[in-house]
């Protein structure tokens, strides 16, 4: 039994996955990313080992990913978010051809081949408009928690898209819509559609092909798969465990690396 660990240090959350033989997830956990990335990562790693009753020597490989991956000082290697999420998505849904990873900071669309290798990718990296950051601001302007807005948005019948791209400028538009007494659920669904509209552009650039698997923090927001389905006319894979796709994928990549280096035998 070979144990590998994947740690995904995102802009909001740090996720960890511990795996056996690169196939079975034996532990996963999440914590808020703090300003000290290294400490955050060490913290989740420490509690994982403790809960599993493992020593550091028992772990064969630690792979870091996410925007804070370079700060994980106990890592064996680091991999990009795109590679890690693609691997993770494929573990949960083997027929995945497109991976859409929507995080707090930005989102990434990747096309993968039947062996799970990334063929092409695009990301929204210039600003927050294509990520959860936009929705966080909308939640703040409307006085809701980020965890609530998806559920409210699902009740919408006539969504009103937010035309402003800039998350900061969207504030005045949202305030205007509220004063015009547009129902809250329609404003919120409109905001989700606006973000997804921008994300879908990146997906189209890599080429939409079923199955599409959604990963990253926003997979937990029920309005996101709904909005994506509407724009793509196709149902994406969006189960809650895909929240951990980055960390899981990183752990899988760790195991594969060990196989390649012939340090372990295939189970």
């Amino acid at each position: 039994m070979v144990i590998t660990v994947g740690i995904d240090v995102g802009t909001r959350n740090t996720k960890i996955a511990v795996m056996e033989d690169g196939a079975k997830i034996i532990y996963k956990n999440v914590t808020r990313t703090t300003f000290d990335f290294a400490k955050t990562a060490r913290g989740v790693y420490g509690s994982a080992l403790k809960e599993l009753g493992l020593r550091e020597d028992d772990v064969k490989y630690v792979v870091a990913t996410g925007f804070g991956r370079y700060r994980v000082d106990f890592r064996d290697i680091n991999v990009t978010d795109i590679t890690a999420n693609s691997r993770g998505a494929r573990l949960f849904y083997p027929n995945t051809r497109c991976v859409l990873d929507i995080g707090a900071g930005n989102s990434r669309a990747a096309k993968i081949d039947e062996r799970g290798r990334v063929v092409k990718f695009r990301s929204t990296e210039k600003c927050a408009a294509g990520g959860g950051g936009f929705l966080e601001k909308i939640a703040y302007y409307t006085g809701f928690e980020i965890s609530e807005i998806g559920k409210i948005a699902l009740q919408s019948k006539n969504p009103v898209p937010i035309s402003t791209v800039c998350s900061v400028f969207a504030e005045s538009e949202v305030i205007n819509l509220v004063t015009q007494e547009v129902p809250m659920e329609d404003i919120l669904m409109g905001a989700h559609l606006s973000v997804i509209g921008r994300v879908v552009i990146t997906l189209k650039q890599v080429g939409v092909e079923p199955e599409v698997t959604l990963t990253g923090g926003l997979v937990l927001n029920p309005a996101i798969p709904k909005a994506l389905e509407e724009k793509l006319k196709m149902k994406p894979n969006a189960s809650p465990e895909l929240f951990y796709a980055g960390a899981v994928g990183a752990a899988v990549l760790g195991y594969r690396r060990l196989l390649k280096k012939r340090e372990v035998q295939a189970a």
């Binding site: 300003f35 804070g68 700060r71 927050a128 408009a129 950051g133 800039c166």
Partner: peptide
Amino acid sequence: STCAVFAETETMEQLAW
């Protein structure tokens, strides 16, 4: 970063370095 929303994470990242 140029996006005003990214100012927070960019500051965090620079301090982390």
